[in-house]
Write a protein that binds this DNA or RNA. Structure first.
Lengths: 150, 150
DNA sequence: AGTTGACTTGGAGCTGACTCCAAGTTATAC
DNA sequence: GTATAACTTGGAGTCAGCTCCAAGTCAACT
C-alpha cells in the first residue's frame, strides 16, 4: 500500500502529495493552494511533475495546522514558518521583534480564552457575579485593514 | 456632542447605533449585519425606524467581540449569547453539555497557544530542543456545525 | 421651504481560505 | 496499446464575515 511494495523497488526518498496529505491531515488541494500562495515553498518535483515532500516539509505543515488552531491567518504565520526553517533568529532583529510582538498577542489571546472559561465556569456554578468584561489590552484586532487605494 | 446637549432634553433611554458603535468598537454596518443574520435580536426602534440599544445589548456585543478574539465563528457563539441573556443554564441540559464541550475545546486551544509561546521562547533562547509537535487532542477543528437550535 | 445629518433598507462587492473541476501528462497494469 | 490511477495546471465557485453604496425617510435647524 505504501512505498517498497511490488518488485520494482522505488526508493523515492520522500512522500507523495497523497501520503503527505494523510500524514498531515491537510488535503492535497490545500497543500497545492498553500504552495500557490507561497505559504509553502515550491515543492521539489520528481520526473517532470509530481511533488515530493520531506519530513521537514511535513513538520512545517503540521506547524501550519497548529498555528491555524490558534486562529492565526495564513499571512500572519509566514514569519513563524521562516522561523521554523531558519534557526538563526537573532540575525534578523526585525523578525525577532515581530515574533515578540506576536507572542504578546498570543498571551493576550490566552487571557481572553481564560476569561471565557471563567465565564462558563461561573455560569455553570450558578455563582455568576455579573459580567466581568473581556478586558484585554485595548483593541488588538488584526491590524488596520489598509485598503490602500481604490 | 452626546445626549442631553442643547435645549430640547431628549431622554431617549438607550443608545443610538452610532453611540453603540463607539461604545463597543463594532461598526454600525457590522451591528446591522449581526442583526440581519440573527446573531443579535431585532433591536428596538424609536419613532418608526432608528434602533436603540440598552446597556445589556452593549454587553452582548462586547461578548461577541471577546468570543471573536478567541477565533470562534459567529455561528458557534450563538449558544454563548443565549447563555448571556438567560441565566438558567441547568434547565437546558443539551446546551449545558454543549457548553462544557466548548469549554474543553477552549482549554485545548489554550494549550495549543501555550505551545506556540513555548516554541517562540525556545527559539529566542537559542535553546531549541527540536520540534515538539502541536500534540493536542486529536482533530478538533470546528465542531459539527449544529444548526438545529433557533 | 430647503438643507443637513443621522438614520433606514436592500443589495452588491470584497477578502481569506479553501474546494472543486476540466483538461492534460505520465507510469504502471493488464 | 489501451485503460487506470496518480498526479499536474489554471481557473472557477463557495462560504463566512464583513464593507460599501444608493436611495429613501424623518426630525431639526435656518
Amino acid at each position: 500500500m505504501s512505498e517498497g511494495a511490488g518488485t520494482g523497488v522505488h526508493i523515492v526518498q520522500g512522500y507523495s502529495i497523497k501520503q503527505t496529505s494523510e500524514l498531515t491531515g491537510i488535503t492535497e488541494d490545500t497543500i497545492r493552494y498553500y504552495e500557490k500562495i507561497g505559504l509553502l515553498p515550491r515543492a521539489q518535483r520528481k520526473g517532470n511533475s509530481h511533488r515530493i515532500y520531506s519530513d521537514n516539509d511535513i513538520e512545517t505543515m503540521k506547524l501550519i495546522t497548529c498555528l491555524k488552531k490558534t486562529g492565526m491567518s495564513l499571512d500572519d504565520m509566514r514569519p513563524y514558518l521562516d522561523l521554523s526553517l531558519d534557526s538563526n533568529l537573532s540575525e534578523y532583529p526585525e523578525l525577532h521583534e515581530m515574533i515578540l510582538n506576536h507572542k504578546q498577542k498570543i498571551l493576550d489571546q490566552i487571557a481572553s480564552l481564560q476569561q471565557i472559561v471563567d465565564l462558563i465556569d461561573s455560569k455553570i456554578d450558578q455563582n455568576y457575579l455579573g459580567p466581568q468584561e473581556c478586558v484585554l489590552t485595548g483593541d488588538q484586532k488584526k491590524m488596520p485593514v489598509r485598503r490602500t487605494i481604490r
